[in-house]
Amino acid sequence: METVKISNKIKNSGLRREENLFGYLFVLPAVIGILLFIAYPLFVSFIGMFLDWSKYDNSVFQAQWNNFENFKQVFGSAFGKYFWQSLYNTVFIMIGIPIGLVLSLVFAMLLNREMKGVYIYRVLFYLPVVSSLVAVCIMWQKLLAPDGVLNSLLGFFGIKGPAWLVEEATAKWSIIFLTVWKGLGSSILLYLAGLQGISKSYYEAAEVDGSGAFNTFIKITVPLLYPTTFYLVVTGVIGGMQCYVEPQLLYGSSRLDTKTVVGYIFGKFGDDYLGEASVISWFLAIIIFTITAIQFIYNGRREKR
């Protein structure tokens, strides 16, 4: 009884109020930042979906209400098909995510072994991550040119390589090659950390039980690396859906067969159709949110099991 009284006294004392005040003051900059740079833009772009809105308007509230016209323009007009194409292009390029995961796991396993010069290999694999994306794109343009290194190699085996960057069938694959190569280093690094966190006792026990290398990999390594894989998949999907720079640098903004959703939003912004840009942005955000939510739900259920 006495303890409760003392506690209430402390709760209502000037000292506690002062402490609370300082607490609120400390979080205030972050709250203001969130309100200004996240909540307000979200609100404005949401309203903007229903407005005939120009970037030259002094305020979004000056714009005229145009009901669902922006939705019609994006999804239903004669050139709505170019939006769906940009979405298809974006999803297609995301094929690079599983490819990158498999490759980075394989390389991480190799680099996790004790061998001579392993640190040099690790640095080499990480180099693309720290390289300038512009320089990387120019290099890949040269590599994938008709008389570039890749086609010269193919020619060595008697295969006539395609014009990778020109033909529609290979243009998106060129972006996938680039993104996988560029992102491999950081995935390898995370998998390496994950691998080194797995206790050796699991492997010793498996060896005692007569488990083969492949079985050990499937039954021990892969499940214990799941948190890393989960993280890489989630960040990969979020990043992949927002892919923009690589196609832009490789092909410029004009080609529709390599234009991604973010590139399409950028084009709408450039043409001053801000309402349409808002519709696509929200559509993209909902897709990313849904996929991420499904991943988290699946992960939650898996952990419960």
Partner: peptide
């Protein structure tokens, strides 16, 4: 943006 459809690579 789609004019590549009237062009072709060597193959």
């Amino acid at each position: 943006g789609s004019i590549g459809k009237i062009w072709a690579g060597e193959n």
